[in-house]
């Protein structure tokens, strides 16, 4: 399994504040990854580092095996939709497509045009007159017309109504499926992305807190409900307690498991992705990282 994005000890400092710090992660090829974290966690910074818009202050990032900003050969191979969907508001949609055609050697005009026509986006209207959903579709069409191997989208759904969200995600999934591309979508809400993503990266406080296949993550976490628990006695099968809530008589634990939990004192429930994310965000010191992989990356980096 090769990786579309590999970050090693990646950091970006603005004046005195670290926007992203010691970020080590790997996004495997072919995945649709959700980059989740509260506002200010460093999602935009990470995406800008991946596109070469920013240069790292520390560490290294490799995208499709190349260094963003250094290798011009990377630019045609990824598509990027930046936060707030920047477009030239005085341009018509047709002008925007011409802009893409003139700034990209690899450009599928037919694809972009038919896709926008099918969505009934008026091609002769100025971008500034379109609805938020239509603008997002234009930006997505521009990114997809590059036929990218990697698609990076920064808060693409933030300003869209539920119907526009559904349409946007549908077009995104079609596009990604056609080319077998990797996609990274950032959002501060996991519920936006839960339906389409199969990989989760959780950033908080400028660091990677959780990274992994969503099914594996869900499989490795359980919600335990049992009698009020005192002290930190180990429960067989629990690798770590991520979050615990106590009432007078009852304890609820969200745990990462390393084996089956057979203790009859505990009622075992499956965990939803949103609960999982919230539990980790509530406990910044807890983490779930694919340790063996990271170890090998560190070894590679130190060689």
């Amino acid at each position: 399994m090769s990786a579309a994005v590999v970050a090693t000890g990646l950091g970006k400092k603005y004046r005195r504040r670290w926007a992203l710090r010691d970020c080590t992660l790997e996004i495997p090829e072919g995945r649709i990854a959700a980059l989740v974290g509260p506002n200010g966690a460093g999602k935009t910074t990470l995406l800008h580092l991946a596109t070469g818009l920013l240069e790292p202050t520390a560490g290294e990032i490799r995208v499709l095996g190349l260094t963003p900003g250094e290798d011009p050969g990377l630019l045609p191979r990824f598509g990027f939709v930046a936060q707030d969907v920047p477009l030239y508001r005085g341009f018509t949609v047709t002008d925007m497509l011409a802009f893409g055609r003139h700034t990209n050697a690899r450009w599928d005009d037919h694809l972009a045009r038919t896709r926008l026509e099918r969505l009934e986006v008026p091609l002769d209207d100025k971008v500034g007159h379109l609805s938020g959903g239509q603008r997002a579709q234009v930006a997505l069409a521009l990114a997809l017309a590059k036929r990218p191997e990697l698609l990076l989208l920064d808060e693409p759904l933030a300003s869209l109504d539920p119907l526009a969200r559904r349409d946007f995600l549908r077009v995104l999934m079609e596009g990604v499926a056609e080319d077998g591309a990797t996609a990274v979508l950032s959002s501060h809400l996991i519920s936006d992305l839960e339906r389409v993503c199969d990989y989760l990266i959780l950033l908080s406080h400028a660091r990677t807190q959780v990274a992994g296949d969503i099914d594996q993550l869900l499989g490795a976490h359980r919600l335990l409900v049992g009698p009020r628990r005192h002290g930190g006695g180990r429960i067989a099968g629990v690798a770590a307690v991520v979050q615990e809530d106590h009432t007078d008589r009852q304890s609820t634990l969200l745990v990462r498991t390393d084996g089956p939990i057979l203790d009859p004192a505990w009622e075992v429930h499956e965990v939803g992705l949103e609960d999982l994310v919230l539990a980790y965000l509530g406990q910044p010191s807890a983490s779930a990282l694919p340790e063996p992989r990271l170890a090998t990356i560190r070894q590679e980096a130190s060689q």
Partner: peptide, 14 residues
């Protein structure tokens, strides 16, 4: 100012 450099600088040209 309008943030469109994020669009212009992530197309195929350097």
């Amino acid at each position: 100012e309008q943030g469109t450099h994020r669009l212009a600088w992530t197309q195929g040209v350097t």
